[in-house]
Amino acid sequence: MTLSAPPATPLRRALFRAPIWLYRLGLGPLLGRRFVLITHRGRSSGQARQAVLEVVGRNSATGAVLVAAAYGPRAQWYRNILHEPRVLFQVGGRRLRGRAEPLPPGDSGDALAHYAQARPETARALTRALGREVDGTPESYRGLGTDPVEGVPVVRLAPERGEP
């Protein structure tokens, strides 16, 4: 079973990118702490690129957030951060410089299982939208995170030291 493809039509791409415009208009706080705007560098162009991702976990003590590469290792933002891990990220109204660090597969699986327990309806809807079948158990989400080919890697966005 493969992940569905990213949006292919101009209208679908525009709808998927609408949250970026909310952030650009200064309305990011309306999305709360469940979403993050990540600004990263294109691996070929070097140009700044942006994506809005759902936060699947957080460490309040360090300010780090976890995000999932829903389209797997082929997601463009994910491929870009592997090449250049320095990023800017914004959660709500808080903007930070930091590093994007992919978690090891076991930790990715644990993070997805924890997220699915915390937000079961959202997790089921997202996996269904991606063309993935899960049975709702923590083990099925853990398997989704640990699969290196068809899985969903999780990335930690960690603020630079000294960032508030």
Rank of each mutant, 00 (worst) to 15 (best):
T2A: 11
L3Y: 00
L3A: 06
L3D: 00
A5F: 06
P7C: 09
A8N: 13
L11D: 10
R13Y: 02
A14R: 15
R17I: 03
R17H: 15
P19E: 08
W21D: 12
L22K: 09
L22A: 15
Y23A: 01
R24W: 12
R24A: 15
L25S: 11
G28N: 09
P29Q: 08
L30C: 11
G32R: 05
R33Q: 11
H40C: 03
H40A: 05
R41Y: 03
G42S: 10
R43C: 11
S44N: 12
S44V: 13
G46I: 09
G46D: 10
A48M: 08
A51Y: 06
V52H: 06
V52K: 09
V52S: 05
V55G: 03
V55P: 06
G57H: 06
A61Y: 00
A61M: 04
A64E: 15
A64W: 02
V65W: 02
V65P: 00
V65A: 01
L66H: 12
V67I: 15
A68C: 04
A68M: 09
A68G: 09
A69P: 04
A70I: 10
Y71I: 04
Y71K: 04
R74N: 09
R74C: 00
Q76R: 14
W77F: 14
R79S: 03
N80V: 03
I81Y: 00
I81P: 00
H83R: 15
L88K: 11
L88I: 10
L88Y: 07
L88F: 11
F89D: 03
V91Q: 01
V91M: 03
R95F: 02
L96T: 07
G98Y: 01
R99H: 09
R99T: 14
R99C: 03
P102G: 07
L103F: 04
L103M: 10
P105G: 04
G106K: 09
D107T: 10
S108R: 07
G109M: 05
A111S: 12
A111D: 08
A111C: 12
L112R: 06
A113K: 04
H114P: 00
H114E: 15
A116E: 10
T122D: 14
A123D: 09
T127M: 14
T127W: 14
R128K: 15
R128I: 03
R128C: 07
A129M: 14
A129I: 02
A129R: 12
A129K: 12
L130V: 00
G131C: 01
E133Q: 13
E133S: 10
G136I: 10
T137A: 03
S140I: 05
Y141K: 02
Y141L: 07
Y141A: 01
G143C: 02
E150P: 00
G151V: 04
R156K: 10
L157S: 01
L157H: 01
A158E: 13
G162S: 01
E163F: 02
E163C: 01
